[in-house]
Structures are given as structure tokens and as C-alpha cells.
Design a protein around this nucleic acid. Structure first.
Lengths: 238, 238
DNA sequence: CGTGCGATTGAGTTGGTTCAAGGCCAGTGG
DNA sequence: CCACTGGCCTTGAACCAACTCAATCGCACG
């Protein structure tokens, strides 16, 4: 869908593809995005994009790379609340003087740009609203994952969700998709220890459920896996 | 604060107090709320206010009583994603044709009304936006609770959060506050088993941390407890 | 005086943690 | 070209927080 958008900067293709899927972007919107991509910024892995408690100045759009919303407890425990993928937004708030409620950290090198204001292009506003709704839905998914799934189910559910989200920006192919997460991050995301994540990944590999090598992940039978853990795709609107 | 608002229906006092705390409501806004409270509806405990996957028709405002956003897994496991308290909103969406992403169920008898549209009263819109931001912040809090806190910490953190939220609507007094939750619900909220919730509550009681009797909860030293588990109040704006 | 829901208690079990060591590999500097 | 370093992944063994199963209690309600 929208494979022939008038884009001059291929770096922004994935992001534009996702937003165009959320709302039928017109040329004005695409031009605004393409233009914003011109003011793009590259930040290295591990750099902080936002710090919990500090003011949010602008809405950012991730063009490529992965980031994470993280909370650090005083004693060093760490929780990843959510992952931020290409085409997703950082600081998508609708109120005055917003403060960041979590720290955002780049997990890989991240290419991002200011999200163009929705005023000029109402369809962009629709896309932002849907994106926010999806973000909330995925937070809820994270809650049930942590609250009621066991270790194996948590990993399967998370990996399936990532495939679902990445396919929105066209980043999933027949060979699966790039998974640039360390087992430490997976552990902080799933509320497990790195050691146990390792063992569970081994298990999934040995069961033939997943194929994970060199940061590339694919499923043997994604449908079957989803059924096995009772997962259904996220829907937030008709 | 705002103890002398021109309210004709005392049932809505708690809700109006909360919204007035989020944005400095003018007479127009208060009148709209007071009017909406006239169209209020009473639903019994256990009734479903919203069903996951079905369309959301209107924004609802809880006047009194508690509800919960719940997800039910195919095999019967249940997760409470969040609690909904007086003055909080149900179905606070900003996009077209929204679908409910979780079931909402009344935990007690609930008194609610349609939330007056923000068009006529911009300050109401501000309050709604802030309320949505707070809701997201509390979802994040729920995630870290489930992901990185142990059973004792989860309960303390949750109970402190409830006090924090209830005090916004003036429902906390020197004697503490009403906690109309069964241990089963607490278990589904904290990702524990009812049996273990019971034991942890016993522990907290025996340590003198909490006083819980006949559905009334109070803390011996809320500040100290918060410090002990490294909890700080939620802030989403200046 | 049942009846049923919620809270409580006991005892055995287990999924996941902890601690500790070692392996693999890419990058770096001598 | 090779030794050294630091991330990250892997493995083993002991341990424990929370679960499971099962029974009992208390109480409000009809």
C-alpha cells in the first residue's frame, strides 16, 4: 500500500509507510513528512532521547532504529515499559507543559526527525491519534504479559507483537525481521532475568518455534504460535 | 480546594473536585458537568460497562464507585490492567470509530454520566487531556509494578497509588479511605494469587505498615512506606 | 439454619532467580 | 599478526518467592 508515494528521502520510507497505513495521507501530509525528514537527526545507541521528569519540547518521529521507554528504580532494577519502532512517535502528548513520564533511550543508532505539526495536515493528526491509541493498546498488552503470562508465553507474545508492529512499516519479509535487542533488554522488557531469557530462547529454538540467528528472527508458524498462547492481533479502530 | 463550587448535585462532588484540580474550571465547565450529572446512570457491581472489541460510543465520567479495565485470557486467567475511580474517565479517546481495547467492569455499584463534550468548555478539554495523560502514567506505573517489584512492594505501591489518586477527588481523610476491593481483584491487579495477596496483607498488617479493616485502609506512615519502596508521586505536567 | 462468598491457614511443589564460571567474537592496539 | 579487552551469550547447581491444592473459618443474607 502506498508503495509509490512521492518521497525524496528513502530513509523515511518505513516511517511514512506506517503513518500512511494509519490514515490515508494526502500529498500535503506526505510532503510535510518528507520535508521534516530533511531535518533529521542521528543519535547513537545508548543515548537518552528523553529523561523522566523533564519537559517534553517536541513530538519526534522515529525514521529508523529502535528505542525504549525505560524506568530505573533507585536500587538499579530496570523496567522497559515499551519499545519504540520506526514510524512510531515519541512525546505524543495533547496537554500543556507535558513532562516525560519515562526515560527514552536509543537501543540502536536512531534516525529521527521532528514530527510535522498536524495543523497544516489534518490527516496527519488522525495518524497521530491512531498512533497514540495503538501505543496505549500495546501498553495494555505489556501489562497482561507481565501480569499473567509465564516466561515462555511472555517471549512468544512479545516477539509476535514486534512482528505485528514492524510489518506496519514494511520491515518484515519472508526471512523474518531484524531483532536488534540484547537478551538483557529482553529481560528488562519481560520482567525476567537475562539468564532465564536465554534459557527460554534456547527452548523456543529447540522446539522449532523460532529461528533466531545474527539478530534476525523468523517464526516457523506464527499463526500456530499465536493460537497456542491465545494471542490475537491488536485492533483499536474499525 | 474549590470547596464552594456552585454544584446542585452532591453526588458529583468528588468527580468535579478532581477535574477542577486538573484544570481551573470556569462556571461554564462546572455548569456543564453539573448538568451532565443530571443524566446520570447507576449500574450494579459486576456489570460490564464496555466490552473489549466493541465500539466506544461515548466518553463516560465516573461520579462514584470503582470500576476496572480487565482482560480475560482464553484459559480463564484474568488481568486487571487498571482501576477506574471517581472523577476518572472511561473511553477517553481522540480518534475516529474507537474500539474498546479492554473490558470495563464495575467493581462496586457505579454512578456515572456522559462526560460533557469539551467543545463548549475548552477548560474541560484541558482537564480531559490531563486525565488521559495521568491514565497513561498510571499504566506505566502498573507495568513497573508487575515487571520489577516483588509481592510486598507491589501491594504497597498499589495502595499508595490509590491513596494518591483518591485524594485528588477528596476521598481521603485522616482515617484513610474506603478500599472496596476483594483480595481476588487485588490479586488480578498485582499479578499474584489470591492466597499470596492474603499472606502479604497479613504481613503488612503485622508489620504495622497498614491498617485494613472493614474495607477501610490507612497507613501508619505513608511517606516512610513510599521511601522504603522507592516510590515517588506521579507528575505529568508542571 | 443453611448457603455462599470472601478471607484465612497449612504443607508440598515449582518456575524462575542467584551466583559463578566459561565461551564466543569483534574491535583495538602493540 | 596476535594478544587483550569488553560485550554478550551460554551453562550448571543451589535456592527461594510465589504457586497449588485443599481445608477451614466467619459472616451476611435469605
Amino acid at each position: 500500500m502506498n508503495s509509490d508515494l512521492p518521497i525524496s528521502r528513502p530513509e523515511s520510507a518505513a516511517a511514512i509507510r506506517r503513518l500512511a497505513l494509519l490514515a490515508p495521507l494526502d500529498d500535503v501530509a506526505v510532503a510535510a513528512l518528507d520535508d521534516a525528514a530533511g531535518r533529521r537527526r542521528l543519535v547513537g545507541a545508548r543515548s537518552e532521547l528523553l529523561r523522566e521528569g523533564l519537559p517534553i519540547h517536541e513530538r519526534l518521529l522515529i525514521l529508523s532504529g529502535w528505542a525504549a521507554r525505560i524506568r530505573l528504580l533507585p536500587d538499579g532494577r530496570r523496567q522497559v515499559m515499551s519499545l519504540l519502532l520506526p514510524g512510531e512517535l515519541i512525546g505524543n502528548c495533547h496537554h500543556r507543559n507535558p513532562l516525560a513520564v519515562s526515560t527514552v533511550m536509543a537501543l540502536t543508532d536512531v534516525d529521527m526527525c521532528p514530527a510535522p505539526p498536524a495543523e497544516g495536515a489534518p490527516l496527519l493528526g488522525d495518524a497521530y491519534a491512531l498512533s497514540a491509541a495503538l501505543e496505549e493498546a500495546y501498553l495494555l498488552a505489556q501489562i497482561t504479559r507481565l501480569g499473567r503470562l509465564n516466561a515462555e508465553e511472555r517471549l512468544i507474545d512479545l516477539l509476535l507483537e514486534l512482528m505485528e508492529r514492524l510489518s506496519m512499516s514494511g520491515l518484515v519479509s519472508d526471512e523474518g525481521f531484524a531483532l536488534p535487542l540484547t537478551q538483557d533488554i529482553l529481560a528488562d522488557m519481560t520482567g525476567l532475568t537475562p539468564v532465564h531469557v536465554n534459557r527460554m530462547l534456547q527452548l523456543l529454538r529447540s522446539q522449532g518455534d523460532i529461528l533466531l540467528k545474527a539478530g534476525q528472527l523468523s517464526f516457523d508458524d506464527a499463526q500456530g504460535l499465536a493460537r497456542r498462547i491465545g494471542r490475537s492481533p491488536v485492533r483499536v479502530a474499525l
